[in-house]
Design a binder for these strands. Structure first.
Lengths: 242, 242
DNA sequence: CATGTTTACTTATCTAGACAACCAGCCATG
DNA sequence: CATGGCTGGTTGTCTAGATAAGTAAACATG
C-alpha cells in the first residue's frame, strides 16, 4: 500500500478524494508557477486510471488553482489575494446562444489617444492611438447594455472601418485570427452616467452593473480589447458557480 | 450519413461541435422543464461514444442551460435573463486575509419559520424553524456590507445561542465540523432597502451590490446557510477571473 | 553558427465496455 | 387497499487503450 493509496469505500468518488488530496498538497508543497508531475505519473502514484486523475485535476482547474498547458504540463496558478470569484465568460454571446433575439447598434466610432487607464490595460503607451467603439445591445428588442470597447489601433488598423455591427469579437477573430480570452472582470454597481440611462431606457436613479473586462489574444497573451459594459441591473444577474 | 453526423475534420473537438449543435436545438425545440433523450440515445444519434456526448452535455450544464438528475435524465433549465460567471469564494474572509481590520456587529438574531424562498435553498420544508442572523461588517471601521444569514435551526440548534460575533462560518466549522462550500452566487445591483442605507452610511439613491449565496456542507452536500449580502457598491468590486 | 528535423515527452480527445447508484412504475403479496 | 420488492431505465464513475496534437530539447545538416 502506497502512502498515496486512496480509500475506495467512503461513497465519495475517487476523483473527488484525489482532488481534495491534491488541493492540500498544493498548499503545502507547491508554489505558484510550479509544474505538477505528469498525468501518467500522478495516475500511477494514486493507483488510478489516467482519466480518473484527469477528472480530479479538472476540479482544481475549475476552482482556479491549476492551469493546463497543452503539451507542457499542469501548472500551479498565482493565488491572488484579490476579491476573487472564479470564472469569466463571454457576455452577450451566451445570450444569443440562449435563443434571445439580440441586436447591436453602433453608437459611436472614434479614434483617440489612449489615456492612462486604457493604456495600462491594453499594454500600450499613453497617447498611442486607440479605437473607441460604443455599442448598445438589445435582447428581445429591449435595451440590455451599453459597451465601450477600446482597441489598440496600431495592431488592428482596419477594425474601425470594417466594423459595421454584429460581434466585434468575431471580427477580430476572422480578420486577425485572434483567439480571444477574458483575463479579468471587475464588477461594480453605479448609477448610470452620461447618456446611459436614456440609452438603456431606465430612470437616472436606478443602478447599473458595470463590468470592466480585458480580453487578450490567447496565442501570445497580448491585450486586444478593454471593455466597460453597463448592464441594466433589473435585466441582468450575474451567476457565479464554483 | 445521418442528418446529425458531425464533421470530424474542422479542428474543433467533437464534443464542442455537439455542444454547439445541442445549444441551438435547445433554443428551437425545447422548453424549460423538458427532458432530453437519454445519453445513450443522443450518443447514437450523433454517432459518438456516450463519453463524448457526456462531455458535450457537461459544457451546457456549465453554461447553466441544462441540469442532470441522477437516475432520471437531463433537463432543460429555466432561461431567466441571468448572467452566469464561473466561480465562487468566501466573501469577507478574503478581506481579512488582505490585512484589513474587519469587524462584525450583530444586528439581529431571531427564530423564524422558513418562507418558501429560504426553505427551497436550504432544502427544508416551508415553516421549518430557521435562524435569521443579520450582521454588519466593517473594514477599517467603515461599513462594508450587511448580511442576512439563514441557517436551518433543526440541524444547528445551538448556533443561535453560541454565536456572539466573529466568523459564523468558523463557528459552523468548529462546532459542527462543517466543511463549507459555496454552491452558487447571484449578483444584482439594487437600491438599498429598509435600514440598509442607514446601516451602511450611504445615501438612499446609491446602489448596493446584492449577492445571494448558498453554502453547503461539502461532506454530504446539504445546504448549511443561505445568505443575502448587500455591499456598498462604492466600496466593493467583484473580481472574476477565468 | 543558423536552421530545420527528429524524438521523447506532455496534454487533448475519442472509443469501448463494465458496474454502481438512483429512480419510477409495475406487480405480487399481505 | 397498502406495502414492499422487482425491473428496466437513467445518470455516475472507473478502467483500458488508442490516436492526435502541442512542446522543448537534442540532433543533423547546411
Amino acid at each position: 500500500m502506497s502512502l498515496y493509496t486512496v480509500a475506495r469505500d467512503t461513497g465519495e468518488a475517487l476523483y473527488a478524494q484525489i482532488a481534495r488530496h491534491l488541493e492540500q498538497e498544493l498548499a503545502k508543497m507547491y508554489s505558484p508557477g510550479d509544474c505538477l508531475p505528469s498525468e501518467n505519473d500522478l495516475a500511477a502514484r494514486f493507483g488510478v486510471n489516467r482519466h480518473t486523475l484527469r477528472r480530479a485535476i479538472d476540479e482544481l482547474v475549475d476552482l482556479g488553482l491549476l492551469e493546463r498547458r497543452h503539451g507542457r504540463g499542469v501548472y500551479v496558478l498565482e493565488t491572488k489575494l484579490e476579491y476573487r470569484i472564479e470564472g469569466g465568460t463571454r457576455f452577450t454571446e451566451t445570450l444569443a446562444a440562449l435563443g434571445f433575439q439580440t441586436n447591436v447598434r453602433i453608437l459611436r466610432k472614434q479614434n483617440l489617444p489612449a489615456i492612462e487607464r486604457v493604456a495600462e490595460r491594453l499594454g500600450i503607451q499613453v497617447g498611442d492611438p486607440v479605437f473607441w467603439i460604443e455599442t448598445l445591445r438589445t435582447a428581445e428588442d429591449r435595451p440590455l447594455c451599453v459597451i465601450s470597447h477600446f482597441i489598440p489601433a496600431g495592431r488592428f488598423p482596419e477594425v474601425m472601418a470594417n466594423y459595421e455591427g454584429g460581434s466585434l469579437h468575431a471580427l477580430l477573430a476572422t480578420d486577425y485570427g485572434c483567439k480571444l480570452k477574458r483575463t479579468e472582470s471587475l464588477v461594480t454597481a453605479v448609477l448610470p452616467q452620461g447618456d446611459d440611462a436614456r440609452l438603456l431606457g431606465m430612470p437616472q436613479n436606478r443602478p447599473v452593473l458595470r463590468v470592466k473586462s480585458v480580453n487578450v489574444d490567447d496565442r501570445d497573451g497580448t491585450p486586444v480589447e478593454y471593455a466597460i459594459t453597463r448592464f441594466r441591473a433589473d435585466r441582468i444577474q450575474l451567476r457565479i458557480n464554483p
